[in-house]
């Protein structure tokens, strides 16, 4: 049964970039910072592509943000997604607003499955997927993972970790929770959020990048979607965490032992 899958691709600071807070605490320094697709969303795109390769269907990638967010949509199209939707919004975003806008995209596209990263690595909130599921009255399976390791045969074969039921009416999702691994079955349409160990995302190929340029990328104005765009999570001030002072280097285990035993008294 072919699946119509909606995935998200948020534009975020490259996790390898050094993040510094502006002196007035009103934001972060963006000079010299690179941007890329949220790594958790890359995993979502990869999972959607594997499901499409297995079952057929269509992968639609959505991003919410300024015009530069089109870059992240193109990156997902280059990986193999079919078409993109950019919800243009230049103001601050929070999970309340994001999920309201995604709910509108859902109503327009009526996908069978929505896959999102479990969190974006800028605000680290881990909320949008759950909010979206609640708004739409759908079941949710957060923190989707794989039982097998990322070195396993299943991963080498690029098998999807999210399994579509034989009747095509639900998906089974393995989740990492405290103390073990849980499996949920969620009726379609459903919302799934991805954890790190679900898959290893593919790199875009050169032909993929060329093809992506010709794929459809539709723009919607956030203001025209009838959603309250005022953020409910208001960042008042940013600061840098107290830095830890690295201490002494010890010469050998004997000295380390003495420090731990006599000075720090932790062993």
């Amino acid at each position: 049964m072919p699946l119509k899958i909606l995935v998200t691709a948020k534009r975020v600071e490259d996790p390898e970039s050094k993040i510094k807070v502006k002196p007035d605490g009103a934001g972060i320094v963006t000079d010299g910072v690179n941007y890329k697709m949220n790594p958790f969303d890359e995993i979502a795109v990869e999972e959607a592509l594997r499901l499409k390769e297995r079952h057929g269907g269509e992968v639609i990638v959505a991003s919410i943000g300024g015009e530069k967010s089109a870059t992240e949509i193109r990156a997902a199209l280059a990986m193999g997604a079919d078409r993109g939707i950019l919800v243009r919004h230049d103001g601050p975003l929070d999970p309340v607003v994001v999920s309201a806008l995604l709910a509108k995209v859902f109503e327009l596209e009526k996908p069978d499955l929505v896959i999102l990263g479990k969190q974006s690595i800028d605000d680290d909130q881990n909320q949008a997927g759950q909010y979206l599921a609640a708004r739409l009255g759908l079941g949710q399976a957060t923190f989707a993972s794989k039982i097998e390791s990322l070195e396993s045969e299943a991963e080498q074969k690029k098998e999807p970790g999210v399994k579509l039921a034989a009747d095509g009416k639900s998906v089974a999702v393995v989740r990492e929770v405290d103390g073990g691994v849980e499996t949920l079955e969620v009726s379609l349409p459903a919302v799934v959020t991805t954890d790190l160990r679900l898959n290893k995302p593919r790199f875009a190929s050169l032909p993929g990048i060329m093809k992506a340029k010709k794929k459809e990328l539709k723009e919607l104005a956030a203001a025209a979607l009838g959603v309250d765009l005022a953020p409910k999570v208001v960042v008042k001030k940013l600061s840098e965490p107290p830095s830890r002072k690295g201490g002494v280097k010890v010469q050998d285990v004997e000295e380390l032992w003495k420090k731990l035993h006599d000075e720090a008294k932790v062993v």
Partner: peptide, 9 residues
Amino acid sequence: MWAGNVLAE
């Protein structure tokens, strides 16, 4: 936020 590199109020 940002993997603990920033504290937000």
